[in-house]
């Protein structure tokens, strides 16, 4: 059914317009209102989104919500760090990771089985690359794409996220600005995930438990190298 021919749609819009005390908006009215969407601007950004040492702030906030963090010099240190993280968590040396040239070119240890693709049942650990880190709440921001399927962020028990320190921003608004700079205004990846700590629930007697449906462990590798 085309939008114009949908009676429910027409009735709902008419009731709204009636409640607002006006008829259907003119093109001019519409354009003026939608200016807010065409040229989005930030509302109040709290001071904690404007701290100087964003890296320290990011680490402190992420760890407050039970994420673990580790600072690495650069990409070449990733394979060993991943292998150690899996071993320390008692997980088998198998990894599902995003399809990324920077990762593919690394020297992965022989004992670590590395695969790309979407996550499937049985995957115990995954590795993804953050588009941004948001210091105000220790949040990592991940974008879905053919090379970075969203399932990687949710199915495995352990989620390892690479976060280049250069992409750590102060506030959510900075992350949106960077996303628009990358993709354009009004354009979104299919899924944008903001992840703040590992999965949890407190649904039984308010007892906090980690690893409800998503990963029980969130380990963030901060890379000094961009």
């Amino acid at each position: 059914m085309t939008a114009a021919a949908d009676p429910a749609r027409a009735a709902m819009l008419a009731r709204i317009q009636n409640a607002l005390g006006r008829g259907a908006p003119s093109e001019e009215q519409r354009r003026r209102v939608l200016q807010r969407c065409a040229a989005p601007s930030a509302n109040l950004i709290p001071a904690r989104g404007r701290e100087n040492d964003r890296i320290a702030q990011f680490i402190a906030e992420a760890e407050r919500v039970n994420a673990t963090t580790e600072r690495l010099a650069g990409w070449s240190a990733v394979p060993a760090a991943v292998a150690e993280t899996l071993a320390a968590a008692g997980l088998p040396p198998r990894l599902r990771m995003v399809d990324d040239a920077r990762l593919a070119s690394l020297a992965w240890p022989a004992g670590l089985a590395v695969a790309t693709g979407k996550s499937v049942d049985g995957d115990r650990a995954s590795l993804a690359i953050a588009f941004a880190g948001i210091a105000e709440t220790g949040t990592v921001m991940l974008l879905s794409s053919p090379s970075s399927p969203a399932t990687l962020n949710f199915l495995p028990e352990m989620h390892i996220v690479i976060l280049p320190e250069a992409v750590i921003v102060g506030a959510y608004e900075d992350a949106w600005a960077n996303l628009r700079a990358a993709l354009g205004v009004g354009v979104m990846p299919r899924v944008v995930n903001w992840i703040t700590g590992p999965s949890r629930t407190a649904d039984i007697e308010q007892t906090l438990l980690l690893g409800a449906h998503g990963p029980r462990l969130l380990h963030i590798l901060l890379l000094a190298e961009a």
Binding site: V65, R190, V191, N193, W194, I195, T196, S199
Partner: peptide, 13 residues
């Protein structure tokens, strides 16, 4: 909480 663990923005199929 300062933010829920998962905040997901979904755009289309």
């Amino acid at each position: 909480q300062e933010l829920s663990v998962y905040t997901t923005f979904t755009t289309g199929p």
